[in-house]
Amino acid sequence: MTGYQPDPPVFLLTSAEMRTSVGALGTLLKACVEDGAGIGFILPLGQEKAEAFWQKQVASVENGSAFLLVARENETIAGVVMLALAPQDNGGHRAEVAKLMVHPHHRRKGLARKLMAAIDGLALSLDRWLLVLDTVTGDRAEKLYPTCGYQKVGSIPDYAYGSHGTLDATTVFYKDLR
């Protein structure tokens, strides 16, 4: 585990904290997918499947190959973002930003920006200075990332099925933290 501590309301979860938060994380994931978020799931998404996703992520947090930041409002997990370290020998300088989501009831409060600022600090604390991510083309997040310093690389058509079962393009971004 890194010694990095983000500024509240963002917190870095340990694997033990993550295990005890699987229900809340599942609720967040389910709400975001039901609201149309393109984060790897197709509707309908049951609570059990949403929790199973997070349960699988615990091992990555436990072994240090991924990290989970959460934004809290009144002790409720209102948003999350993951940092997955590149596992390749030649990728020790980079990481992927994944699963940025803010519960629909907690949007428009700056939590996504706070999570993205915290992910930069976390990455730098781990000597990772090149961040990559992708998002559904046309999604509201596509407008957010450039305002957080990300550069658009391009789009890939028909990349993945969206939450409603139709193929969506994805837009790829990167950020150099040096």
Rank of each mutant, 00 (worst) to 15 (best):
2 T>H: 11
4 Y>I: 06
7 D>Q: 13
8 P>I: 03
9 P>F: 06
10 V>N: 05
12 L>G: 08
16 A>E: 12
18 M>S: 01
19 R>T: 09
20 T>S: 13
20 T>A: 05
24 A>T: 05
25 L>V: 02
25 L>I: 03
27 T>K: 13
27 T>G: 12
29 L>N: 02
29 L>H: 02
30 K>I: 00
30 K>Q: 14
32 C>S: 13
32 C>K: 00
34 E>Q: 12
36 G>C: 11
40 G>A: 09
40 G>K: 05
42 I>A: 08
43 L>A: 08
45 L>S: 08
46 G>L: 09
48 E>A: 13
49 K>Y: 02
49 K>G: 02
58 V>I: 14
59 A>W: 12
59 A>T: 13
61 V>K: 08
62 E>I: 07
62 E>D: 14
63 N>W: 10
67 F>S: 13
68 L>Q: 04
69 L>E: 02
69 L>Y: 07
70 V>T: 09
75 E>D: 15
77 I>G: 11
80 V>F: 00
81 V>Q: 03
84 A>P: 00
85 L>I: 10
85 L>K: 11
85 L>S: 07
86 A>T: 04
90 N>C: 08
94 R>D: 00
97 V>T: 01
98 A>V: 07
98 A>E: 15
99 K>A: 00
99 K>Y: 01
102 V>E: 00
103 H>S: 08
106 H>M: 02
108 R>C: 04
110 G>R: 03
110 G>N: 07
111 L>E: 01
113 R>S: 14
113 R>Y: 04
117 A>Q: 15
118 A>I: 10
121 G>F: 11
121 G>D: 12
124 L>S: 10
127 D>K: 14
130 L>W: 11
133 L>S: 06
134 D>T: 09
137 T>V: 10
137 T>S: 15
138 G>F: 07
139 D>P: 03
141 A>K: 01
141 A>N: 15
144 L>P: 03
146 P>L: 10
153 V>E: 13
156 I>Y: 06
157 P>A: 07
158 D>G: 02
158 D>F: 08
160 A>D: 04
161 Y>C: 05
164 H>G: 04
164 H>K: 14
165 G>Q: 12
167 L>A: 14
168 D>Q: 13
168 D>P: 00
169 A>V: 04
170 T>F: 06
171 T>W: 06
172 V>P: 01
173 F>W: 10
175 K>A: 12
175 K>E: 07
176 D>I: 06
